[in-house]
Design a protein around this nucleic acid. Structure first.
Length: 261
DNA sequence: ATGGTAGAGTGTCTA
């Protein structure tokens, strides 16, 4: 087995942040980068700089709100847009594409953008729970291989993953059914491989753009790398690249990086 | 309850 560095990042528009993506690949010597909220069709993407660095790219999603991508310099094989059984929304499942999987350096990586849910009484919230239940079914069939389920889960699994739980008590991301849906992956043997390497309180991956939430560290931990048991056993380190969230022109999420032996 | 900011692309919608 070869050592692999995998990262995931909700980039909030790949076109508006292509320079930051290239800098991230260079800064951390990333082998596989999973992106979410690419917000562009494949034909709109300026990827020459990424390809010139020796990476292959696969993208999914055709609307301006979602979209996922995988960027790899250790192979990009058996690309699948969406997981088996993935429920669709709106005009088509393709338009609302939220998952792309590929085998990169022997590891099966899924870049996931879990539905936001909008509000607990919104049909989109039901869609979110259904989507997660279908993903769990698929993931059960993958767990005996080296699999990484990475991306923006749009769930804060515990109260300490939110800067002020009282403020979010009636919002999505923290409801009991969402947390149970996340916990189900852990019950099946998938492991949050980042948390042991990013301990302590007030560790977040997302800070809203309003009200200087980043500057005041008022964020949420909603971006995760869940590893199958065999993959989790290969993890040698992980970190949240918090500094990427700083300054003008930042995404509202920070990248999360994991090293595998 | 509302609003605050940002990105898609000109109408609002989504997060």
């Amino acid at each position: 087995m070869v050592s692999v560095r995998i990262a995931t990042w909700n980039v909030n528009s790949l076109r508006s942040r292509i320079d930051r993506v290239e800098a991230l690949l260079d800064r951390h010597e990333i082998d596989v980068l999973a992106l979410q909220e690419t917000k562009a069709r494949a034909d709109q993407l300026p990827l020459m700089g990424i390809e010139a660095r020796g990476y292959e790219v696969a993208v999914a999603g055709v609307n301006q709100w979602n979209g996922v991508a995988l960027i790899s310099r250790v192979g990009l094989e058996d690309v699948e847009t969406g997981f088996p059984g993935q429920p669709g929304w709106g005009e088509s499942a393709e338009a609302e594409s939220r998952a792309i999987g590929a085998t990169c350096g022997g590891v099966r990586v899924w870049s996931l953008y879990v539905p936001n849910g909008r509000k607990p009484d919104d049909p989109h919230y039901v869609y979110k729970l259904d989507w997660l239940a279908r993903l769990r079914e698929a993931a059960l069939g993958w767990r005996d291989r080296d699999v990484a389920l990475v991306g923006d889960w749009n769930i804060a699994p515990t109260d300490e993953d939110v800067f002020d739980i009282a403020q979010f008590a009636k919002s999505t991301h923290v409801t009991a059914p969402e947390r149970a849906a996340f916990q189900a992956f852990l019950d099946d043997g998938y492991v949050d491989v980042v948390r042991p390497h990013a301990p302590g309180p007030e560790v977040y991956t997302y800070w809203d753009y309003y009200r200087q939430r980043y500057e005041r560290n008022r964020g949420m931990r909603i971006d995760f790398v869940l590893g199958s048991p065999s993959l989790a056993a290969r993890v040698t380190g992980a970190f949240i690249d918090r500094e990427e969230r700083a300054g003008t022109g930042a995404s509202d999420h920070a990248p999360v990086v994991v090293d595998l032996a």
